[in-house]
Design a binder for these strands. Structure first.
Lengths: 245, 245
DNA sequence: CCAAAAGTGTTCAACTTACACCCATGT
DNA sequence: ACATGGGTGTAAGTTGAACACTTTTGG
């Protein structure tokens, strides 16, 4: 029963990665060549996705996809949206791709979407048969299927989520500097913060713990390292109250 | 093709309603009697849900469910979660209910969940074969299937959403008083606000427009009515920036 | 000694919080 | 006249925004 892929249910993963400079996302190349002329018929990118097994927990399917890509388990994962328009795969390019990769383009597929957060520098993407890599979110053009919309919504969900829970640390190494933390928030929200005000703000967060350790080998004043204490966070967190808008 | 219900995909609707006093939700009774003794074998409640047609847009399925319940179209609707654990229907009571209502309890069902917002006083619930009604969210006990978790998550999603978008007006009549608006936020967040501070806060929202009209027939000083102007909101809204936590 | 990023304080404006009394209406 | 909820302001504390210079390291 575990062996059969469900024809109607898939999982797509928006893997966000921070490289201390930009917000990136993992994309998989779709390349289809004309077997005679060897010309590219399709060359574009999609998010990482797969159909799920008949009796597979979708979160496990997402973990499986992430493990295939990175070799890692225990990656932060958050379900944020389900894409389900019966016509979401009806673009001719998408239909061609599905046909040529052994699927039935007339079959309805609803895709449950997860985003996950990693530190680009801590993972090595395993390339299999298809080309897979990091692409800066800001530079992404037209993706296959309805994946532009999914990516847009993933980023929005990340922005909302990170305002209510300290999930940014999933995208940083265990020890990080305040400038790295600031840059992370800047690229996620696509804004710039004032360094002094930012530090004033985070200095109130007791779960950010300053280490004695400093950066080494940098050609400028070495920065202090901080760690995030989930334990302190859990003890001191308060509920959401205020409403804006 | 439209005629066949998809065996694996359903939609559940968490219909939130405000009656100027409490936050309520529509529940449907599950009642199963022993055909011989006429004793109740199952009596509990679930959210409103249905399987979708093979080629039906899930949002349309949700609209269909809402229309069945209320006779209304154009109800505010927001997809917030997809419940998909392969064992989510494995409780013996749930399996019995599914069997007795003509479904296969071994078939996996993933449920895409929507919440919708209405003003209790403006709708009349159409009772069909099953008992359907409003129940105060705070008083809800054990629901069927995994619907407690879905309801909990729906409320959390509403709380998050209403902090970033002015969707509360969907739960109020077109003309409302500031006390009604305050009460709405209080029941959604399960807190109390100071009346003067609340009014100071909303007085900054330019899309809340004070009418000359007052309440009539109330045995106290009549309150001013306000309306929500979506037009003004769209023109003056700004993006999310700050991060808390 | 130069380049590069780290680190640090103050002032002003805006917002948040706490708090108490009179008003308009129906009965 | 009384009960009920409507409507209003102020002061103190807190937070947010703008802004510039010195420090430490490697090269």
């Amino acid at each position: 029963m575990e062996k059969f892929l469900h024809p109607n249910i898939s999982v797509d993963c928006v893997v966000f990665g921070f490289d201390f400079e930009k917000l990136n996302v993992i994309l998989v190349e779709r390349n289809l060549k004309d077997p005679e002329t060897n010309e590219d018929v399709i060359t574009d990118y999609t998010l990482a996705g797969q159909h799920v097994y008949e009796n597979e927990h979708l979160e496990d399917a997402a973990k499986r996809i992430l493990n295939d890509l990175t070799g890692l388990d225990n990656i932060y994962l958050e379900q944020f949206y389900t894409s389900e328009d019966p016509r979401r795969l009806s673009d001719p390019t998408d239909r061609l791709w599905l046909s040529k990769t052994g699927r039935n383009p007339d079959e309805r597929v609803i895709s449950v979407c997860y985003f996950s957060l990693v530190n680009c520098n801590e993972i090595t993407i395993k390339k299999k048969d298809r080309k897979v890599g990091w692409y800066p979110v800001k530079e992404i053009k037209k993706l296959g299927f309805d994946h532009n919309r999914i990516l847009e919504y993933a980023l929005h969900s990340l922005q909302i989520k990170i305002q209510n829970e300290p999930i940014g640390y999933e995208m940083l190494p265990q020890k990080f500097t305040l400038s790295q933390l600031q840059k992370l928030y800047e690229v996620i929200f696509n804004v710039e913060f004032d360094k002094r005000n930012f530090r004033k703000k985070v200095s109130k967060m007791k779960y950010l713990i300053k280490l004695d350790e400093k950066q080494q080998g940098v050609s400028h004043k070495p920065a202090r390292y901080y760690i995030f204490s989930r334990e302190v966070y859990e003890k001191t967190k308060t509920d959401l109250f205020n409403f804006t808008v």
